[in-house]
């Protein structure tokens, strides 16, 4: 009988086939464990071959040992493979069972927001800041002098009609009607340096509150003072500003106006960005939106600020952040801003 034909070798072959044949039925962790102990355990057929090695002819033992080892390795490899399959299948099943309704709403989080006017003010600061304008803040309660007289509006001057003023019970004090007193304060602080400032702040108007007018409102003024500043610079600066705020292609126009503290004075309109100039409710069918008043700083105001008007020129412009916000977001009632209804504020 040749070595090759010893029945043990066929047996080993059979052991491997039998074991692999049932491995596929081990489809869970328990089946895998049971299969391992049945086919690779101490008493399993292949391990029994190892323990009974003495029964085989001596010269055959290395071959049997080698074959038995091959069978064991084959079974182990198959087991590992099957075990991995089972793990994958079980994981897949587990995950499938965890499927969510992803359309359910997420847990609400609180998002804090800044007031829309804070947001608009910051945008103006940013745009003008890039042109070298820095923010200069002044006070709400002002003297009549700063609010009017030093701005070339003497007592009883017809121009005082342009402002509906709140007077304080303390004589000579008013609630500022515009941020222009800041022009004098900035000039007096900085003279004779050149000036480019943004003057923001709350202003007050003696007027019934309505959808169109408020007793308090923000104003932002621009003031540039220096040598060689011209009306052309005013136009250029404001046109750039309008493009940044309202769109690169927006058309603007300046038309003559009157402010006691500027000369020449102008008002700037931008083409209505709601209707593109065709006429709508927002622009009251005019195609244009009044955005700001402006002009070259009046020589007397320069003088009052400590600058020699024969040497220095300057321009000033004033706008309303509330109005700009209303136009941009189609807000039709200015009272929304200070009534602070969260249903309004949360839209910004």
């Amino acid at each position: 009988m040749s070595e090759e034909q010893h029945p043990i070798l066929n047996q080993l072959e059979q052991i491997q086939q039998d074991a692999l044949a049932v491995l596929e039925t081990a489809v869970d962790e328990a089946g895998i464990t049971a299969w391992r102990s049945a086919h690779l355990g101490r008493t399993s057929p292949v391990m029994t071959v190892f323990s009974q090695m003495g029964q085989f002819p001596k010269e055959l033992r290395p071959l049997v040992g080698q074959r038995a080892n091959q069978v064991k390795l084959a079974l182990e490899a198959a087991l590992a493979e099957q075990a991995e399959r089972v793990r994958q299948a079980e994981l897949a099943q587990k995950l499938a069972a965890e499927t969510l309704d992803v359309t359910l709403p997420g847990r609400p989080q609180t998002l804090g927001r800044l007031h829309p006017i804070t947001q608009t003010l910051r945008e103006i600061y940013r745009v003008m800041g890039e042109m070298g304008f820095q923010v200069y803040r002044a006070r709400d309660v002002e003297t009549d002098d700063y609010n009017f007289t030093l701005l070339n509006i003497p007592p009883h001057h017809p121009a005082r009609d342009m402002w509906d003023t709140y007077y304080m019970t303390t004589p000579g004090m008013v609630l500022r009607t515009h941020t222009s007193p800041g022009q004098i304060r900035a000039m007096r602080e900085y003279a004779p340096d050149p000036i480019r400032v943004i003057l923001p702040g709350m202003c007050y108007r003696y007027e019934q509150v309505s959808a169109r007018s408020e007793i308090q409102f923000n104003q932002v003024e621009l003031l540039a003072v220096g040598k060689g500043i011209t009306f052309g610079d005013l136009k250029g600066t404001l046109t750039d500003f309008a493009r940044r705020m309202f769109g690169q292609n927006v058309r603007t126009r300046l038309r003559p106006s009157y402010f006691p503290f500027t000369e020449p004075s102008a008002e700037m309109d931008v083409e209505c960005f709601v209707c593109g100039g065709k006429g709508c409710q927002v622009c009251k069918s005019s195609g244009w939106l009044e955005i700001l008043g402006c002009g070259m700083v009046h020589p007397k105001v320069l003088e009052n600020g400590g600058y020699d008007p024969r040497e220095f020129t300057g321009f000033a412009a004033g706008m309303g952040p509330e109005r700009i916000t209303m136009l941009r977001h189609r807000i039709d009632d200015i009272r929304y801003f200070w009534s602070d209804d969260v249903r309004f504020l949360e839209q910004f």
């Binding site: 042109m131 070298g132 820095q134 900085y190 340096d193 050149p194 000036i195 480019r196 540039a224 220096g226 040598k227 060689g228 500043i229 011209t230 052309g232 610079d233 136009k235 250029g236 600066t237 046109t239 750039d240």
Partner: peptide, 9 residues
């Protein structure tokens, strides 16, 4: 329209 060319403060 021109851009400001006077010196920066």
């Amino acid at each position: 329209a021109t851009r400001l060319s006077s010196s920066l403060p």
